[in-house]
Nucleic acid binder design. Sequence first.
DNA 1: GCGGTACCGTTATTATCATAACGATCGCGC
DNA 2: GCGCGATCGTTATGATAATAACGGTACCGC
Lengths: 155, 155
Amino acid sequence: MPTTSTENAGTAGGREQAYRLDDQVGFLLRRAYQRASANLVEKIGGHDLTPPQFATLARLYERGKVSQNLLGRLVTMEPANIRDVVQRLRKRGLVSTTRDPTDTRLIVVSLTARGRALTRALLPVEMACTSKTLAPLDENERKVLYDLLRRLAAG
Amino acid sequence: MPTTSTENAGTAGGREQAYRLDDQVGFLLRRAYQRASANLVEKIGGHDLTPPQFATLARLYERGKVSQNLLGRLVTMEPANIRDVVQRLRKRGLVSTTRDPTDTRLIVVSLTARGRALTRALLPVEMACTSKTLAPLDENERKVLYDLLRRLAAG
DNA sequence: GCGGTACCGTTATTATCATAACGATCGCGC
DNA sequence: GCGCGATCGTTATGATAATAACGGTACCGC
């Protein structure tokens, strides 16, 4: 039978697709994320905020109070992980938590005044950081990149 | 003066560049990497190999024996991190380590016979995984993505 | 009502990852 | 030769991640 996928064709006449680690998307994505993350930490690290922590604050800033579980989904973190992040932010007085009265299971997370002020102050900083990370690309290339990454993330 | 960057212009007449978390490269890259990583773990996780572990094996497969420190640079891992990875792979008999006689500081890492066999067997698996991750993109878009990601990672 | 299913939060375990501080060795310059 | 900066590996600490297992709660069908 003919090859049905993009796999190599074994001993068939097709040219072998040689393996190279530098040609694997996962490896490239990891390296690119390392760079972007380093840029953010450099600019925002003075406030002891990691990229996931800032993403959590930014999401709360956009959405207002949401349940801890939904918040996790909004920043693609597992329940166990968003729990830890919320806990750290709460210890620093940047977010506060209450129980939803109509659904006792839910922990509702919201920004404190301090958290909102800090987040608002740092939004332009992260935008500048994004610009710095994207510096090697021109305007059109950035648009293309965003489109491709969004489609990859969506699966 | 006219706006000189993509920054917002404060109170000036320019349209404000609104912040959106979903428009930050770092966030998009993190999500895309999560997807790629999940795909790899799904296919290769049965062997209890994480993406960084497999990257390490693949690099050794490509390069032969190299020092632990250089190996770390070849997979973009800090000395403290590549140390842990090498240690785990060594405990499982996939790599072995020796001291460089001419430079006592260096720990030379190389694949064992088992490690080489396992890596060789898994190379096509990761290539298939890369194809799966890239499934939403056509051939030309993949080339563009690779170019953009490489330039981002290079800084 | 009631029972089962689905969902939420927690705990535990394991692996990444970055940073800082430290001892040991190498190699260059003088 | 010899010292001193640079490099290599290690340790420690703290944060991110995925997974599995568990108890508690809500909701839906009957």
